[in-house]
Write a protein that binds this DNA or RNA. Structure first.
Lengths: 348, 348
DNA sequence: CATCATACATAAAGCGCTTTAGCGCTTTAC
DNA sequence: GTAAAGCGCTAAAGCGCTTTATGTATGATG
């Protein structure tokens, strides 16, 4: 592309290209979209002229005429104040974008306070043909949004979450249950008999899945498990940690549902002069640079979230292109053992 | 809004509304857009019918017809892998969105690898009338993007950065120099004589501004200052910290350009059995929940970034509405003193 | 009573593109 | 040999909306 900033005022349209290339606008459209109906010579000529004139498609006109909008949409129903806490979304976004950018797609992002506004946004996008497809995150148990996307005229969608809850729509998921079992086993192998899970928001589907896997694995190994509920904030993580430590027979191993809560938990331990990992072992979900740089470094269930986002984007392109729905397993978060885990205190 | 999911297939347009309300589509358009030319009775009727039919505007048609797109755009020229590291962008986005959502605007986000792709994206948006305005972040010294937005046919823009670099365009900024001075003075007041600044990317404008303020304040107080360059990653933060501590007469006070580097610095101190704040005082830029939950808690230059984002969005609305350009000062990041700062070791 | 605003409404043009129907021609199939 | 199919292209309709020019009443004005 030539980089002249374009003549101010005068917008260049395909009519201009048509005139200059001596063909009809229809031919220009065919040439520009790589469709058959024009000779290679003409196509080349049109492309040259378009380049020369510095043409860029008017996406509005394009989508009005029934074509794609070259845009995917994602809405986040979260409190804006807490959005920055977890690095997950930013990484996920970055991953999505890396794939979208390659095809010249943009991402329309909307942060709304609640579920109802999310639904309304999806409806407006669908009716207004604003996006070509949407990404559904924060899947809930029995999520009403899933039903909306099963309707005949619904937008193409990829659901980020367990296939069992995706109602036959295309989903991309991670095997959180397997990861949870790995974490529990790791602690058990090191002699821990009492393990706490500091869990995230209850209504989120993956929380339930992790809960179940935790309870199941703990009981099948004959361990004692404690389940604590939080909202993902470090405050809550600290609170839950204190509550668990205040009980009699406190846990010696903690598994946190995100990295910031694990950091908060670590701080609680330090406050109480508990040594990590000598007195307490800690595992975080969601590895991040943060985990590598605490002291001691936090063990974490590590997952390439940027790649995850990219994967989701590719699947959405497939759906838009008419691919059959399917459930696609992304890589399983694996335990990255660092200094924060060690043998249980009693066994030392 | 009535929440029927809309009859599948048949899209509701203003013609449908016109037919049902017994008026022309022109009248419907006027009524829907709150413009004069229709009686109150007609307007009410049209609005009712629109509601009843579950109409949503086709944004493509709207913007094709020369009106707004109800969308702002922002492009981030960053390595996707590093985007998740800092919580700044996510908070900033959340702030933007909180304001946009109120007016039914969306945010078109694009993450690109470099400056050239950013420029190309802006050009495509301008030519294709894809957005009503753009937000320019990560302002650089002598930024070529600024010039592009000074052109006659340029898109409305708000520049996030120092007015001295905004070339007369509307800017929203924070007085980083004042914040830096406050941090340096705080350490000086506590008796620190050797202070290190662990700075971010050199080409970013605010890095320079902080650099200058640091150097200036340090020298005017007769202190010894060390300036270390990083790329904002905790790895680099740790490296810089080690380098500074390895010198003879190592600094006793550190000011980091973001929170994750400060955490990394804290870890380096712990590794070396340096006590914080007894041996070393630490201040982070960009307060976050993280800072409150390290041990000891990190002092930080605290700034409400969500509010900052919202402020920027409001200014962009003003620009789009034809407001005169101006430089708008957001609140100044203030030092929030926590456990990580104390008297210099020599003075104890 | 003719005149002129004023308020309300309509018809129609047009935004920039995609896409269908068809044109005159050449090639292939049977 | 003829029918069918393909080629490269054009003309024109239409996507859903905004907006201008143009009526047509109504009431106020002189």
């Amino acid at each position: 592309m030539v980089s002249e900033p374009g003549t101010p005022g005068s917008r260049v349209t395909i009519s201009d290209i048509a005139a200059r290339a001596g063909v009809s606008i229809g031919a220009v459209s065919f040439a520009l979209n790589g469709r058959k109906g024009v000779s290679e010579a003409t196509r080349k000529r049109v492309l040259e002229v378009a380049d020369e004139l510095g043409w860029a498609p008017a996406s509005a006109a394009r989508s009005l005429a029934g074509a794609r909008t070259d845009t995917f949409g994602m809405v986040l129903a979260r409190d804006p104040q807490n959005l920055g806490v977890e690095s997950f979304y930013m990484k996920f976004l970055a991953g999505l974008e890396s794939e979208l950018a390659q095809r010249g797609f943009g991402l329309l992002l909307q942060v709304v306070p609640g579920a109802e506004q999310e639904r309304a946004t999806h409806e407006a996008w669908r009716r207004g043909r604003r996006v070509d497809g949407v990404i559904l995150v924060d899947l809930q148990v029995d999520d009403p949004r899933v039903r909306a996307f099963q309707m005949p005229a619904a937008l193409p969608v990829v659901i980020v979450g367990d296939p069992s809850l995706a109602g036959g729509l295309t989903s991309v998921w991670t095997d959180d249950a397997a990861s949870m079992r790995e974490a529990v086993r790791e602690l058990a192998d090191r002699g821990h008999r009492r393990i706490a899970r500091v869990a995230g928001l209850e209504h989120l589907a993956h929380t339930r899945i992790r809960d179940d896997a935790f309870v199941d694995e703990v009981s099948s190994l004959g361990l004692q498990g404690v389940l604590l509920r939080t909202d993902y904030t470090p405050d809550e993580g600290a609170r839950a940690t204190r509550a668990a430590l205040d009980g009699d027979a406190p846990p010696t191993g903690f598994i946190y549902d995100n990295d910031v809560m694990a950091v908060a938990g670590l701080t609680v331990a330090l406050e109480r002069d508990l040594r990590v990992p000598d007195d307490l072992s800690i595992i975080a979900w969601d590895d991040s640079v943060l985990c590598e740089h605490t002291y001691p470094a936090l063990s974490a269930l590590s997952h390439d979230i940027v790649a995850f986002g990219a994967h989701v984007a590719r699947r959405l392109f497939d759906v838009v292109d008419g691919a059959q729905p399917g459930a696609f397993l992304d890589s399983t978060p694996r335990l990255r053992a660092r200094a924060s885990i060690g043998p249980a205190p009693s066994t030392r």
